[in-house]
Design a protein around this nucleic acid. Structure first.
Length: 201
DNA sequence: CTGACGATTCACT
DNA sequence: GTGAATCGTCAGC
């Protein structure tokens, strides 16, 4: 499996990168244990012109500072005081694009992921939804600003590709506050995959 | 310093 | 379908 390099992340089309992340493998590795999942659902956040993004209108704070870094870093933040949400920072320095990873299919370390989440057996809830995914992979805010080429956190390509007809797009989830931008079709997911959040369609 | 709230999830009606 | 959990962040005073 090849690690994606900074060239992959530092391109300008965040929608293209989001789509290409489908089928890639998100890996975390600590204490010698590897946990990973194949990405099946993502959402793009388009910099300063996207009202749903933390960086809307150039907003720049201690929390979202990493969105302004050059692509290839992780942006992790706490939502609702409970859930750690994992994003991939893309594009060049000073262009705050990011992609939220919303769901994956478990690949390695299922036992470890069950232990972290307190679940008894593998089912669709293990890595379905951004909060659950982060919990299963052990992602927390200390990963914020970490390089996605790190040994303990990276995204790999094992050559697997979903057929284009399996890829669907839709408006993003949970961004109703964003007015007209809430309707933008910036969510990409694998049709029919049980780990994809939201209602099957 | 204070108060409002969120790129969510889960239990319960 | 509805509401609670839970706390860091941020705007405003």
């Amino acid at each position: 499996m090849k690690k994606l390099t900074t060239d992959f992340y530092r391109r300008s089309d965040v929608l293209l990168i989001a789509r290409e992340l489908l089928g890639k493998i998100l890996v975390t590795q600590g204490d010698g244990v590897r946990t990973s999942g194949r990405i099946v659902e993502v959402e793009a956040y388009n910099g300063i012109v996207d009202k749903a993004a933390h960086s809307y209108n150039g907003r720049r704070t201690a929390r979202n500072e990493v969105m302004y870094a050059a692509g290839g870093l992780a942006y992790v933040y706490l939502c609702y005081g409970i859930h750690h949400l994992f994003n991939v920072v893309t594009n060049d320095k000073e262009v705050p694009h990011a992609i939220l990873i919303r769901a994956a299919e478990p690949v390695d370390g299922v036992e470890e992921m069950l232990r972290r989440t307190g679940k008894k057996k593998l089912d669709y809830t293990l890595t379905r939804g951004p909060g659950n995914l982060s919990k299963a992979l052990g992602i927390h805010t200390s990963f914020n600003s970490t390089s996605l080429c790190s040994p303990e956190l990276f995204i790999g390509d094992d050559g697997f590709r979903y057929p284009p007809k399996k890829i669907a797009r839709s408006p993003r989830i949970g961004v109703d506050y964003a007015g007209a931008d809430a309707a933008l079709p910036y969510r990409f997911y694998i049709k029919g995959n049980p780990f994809v959040s939201g209602k099957p369609k």
